[in-house]
Simulated scan of single mutants.
Amino acid sequence: MGAPIPAIQPMLATSAPLPAEGDDADWAFEVKWDGVRCVVEAPGDGSLRLVTRAGNDATVTYPELRALGERFRRRAAVLDGEVVVLGAQGQPDFGLLQRRMGVLNPRRAAQLAMEYPVHLMLFDVMFLNGRPLLATPYLDRRATLAALGLGGPHCSVPAHMEGHGRKAWQATLKAGYEGVVAKRLASPYTPGVRSPEWRKTKHVNTVDVIIGGWTEGRGALTGLPGAVLVGLAEPTGLRCVGSVGSGLSERERRELARYLEVLARPGPPFAGPVDVPAAHWGEPKLVAEITFSGWTPAGHLRHPVWHRLRPDLTRLG
């Protein structure tokens, strides 16, 4: 049996802009990983337990990470990190990770571990060798974590950048990561608290899309577009890239309903089949600007949010 270790909830970041450029010296900057947050409990007997932010035991789900427990034989620890699946270009691919999430059948989990292996990105240590580190400043906790030598085929301690927020922003944007997490160098670890000492800032992509249909909303939105079906013009035709409902105001939904009634057509304007039950179709004349966080493996928009209709690009004549 390993030594008793405390149950520690993960510290959470506040959504906020990067610190002001003149304040950079007080902050460290890390990659914002697009994965599943996990607290790693290693009691020191060679075993390992993964606990999600919701408090669920995910140890069975990610069997390839159990070997990390051997690195903590005779030294108990609680660490913080994010489980990701890396795509072909080396960036986290949340679409692939979703195929791993929630699997509790050991045989199925082992099979998926071969097909879509996960990688654990460790970025904090809250307890080590019987000593709580919650009050220890971030910078010192980071040095302690780096000294543990935890790199391996399924685990890394990614580098952080001190004092250069704009460089971190540009580097993560160029590399295709989700964003940046800024952490105050002197910050303690506050379990379960969404603290302003940690700030997360996402990279957001903007794209103009063509509306080719809509699905009806529910409840108060009955009769109005709950979401619009959108596409991008390509040489082979209009390719459907998903639906957008988030961010639409009631006024915009009513405005779209009037336009789409005039533009109604019997079938989809998209090239290739679009499997959307009870969809209404429209002539591809309306152009909208949306924001999104990336692309799914199927080529659909991830986390699309409506920004505005583009009347300057729309031809209703």
Rank of each mutant, 00 (worst) to 15 (best):
A182G: 02
E250W: 06
Q9L: 15
P268S: 15
K167R: 12
R184C: 01
E261V: 04
D124C: 12
A77P: 02
R66M: 13
L260G: 04
P273L: 12
G2A: 11
H164L: 15
A143M: 12
A110F: 07
G317E: 14
L79A: 03
M1K: 11
R131M: 08
P311H: 00
A279S: 08
L128R: 07
E234A: 13
V287S: 01
W33Q: 02
P137K: 14
V230K: 00
A168T: 09
A3S: 12
I5S: 05
P284I: 04
R265V: 11
F94M: 02
V85D: 02
W281V: 05
D275F: 11
C240Q: 14
R184F: 00
R73S: 13
A220E: 07
R258W: 09
G22T: 05
D45Y: 08
L316D: 01
R194L: 05
L173G: 12
A146W: 05
V262N: 10
V118S: 02
R251P: 03
H164D: 15
L128D: 05
A147L: 05
R254D: 05
A20W: 01
E261F: 03
L173M: 13
Q89L: 12
W214V: 00
V39W: 00
R100H: 08
Y138Q: 15
L50Y: 03
R315S: 14
P117A: 11
L248I: 06
R71P: 03
Q9C: 09
V40H: 06
G149T: 13
R73K: 15
W169D: 10
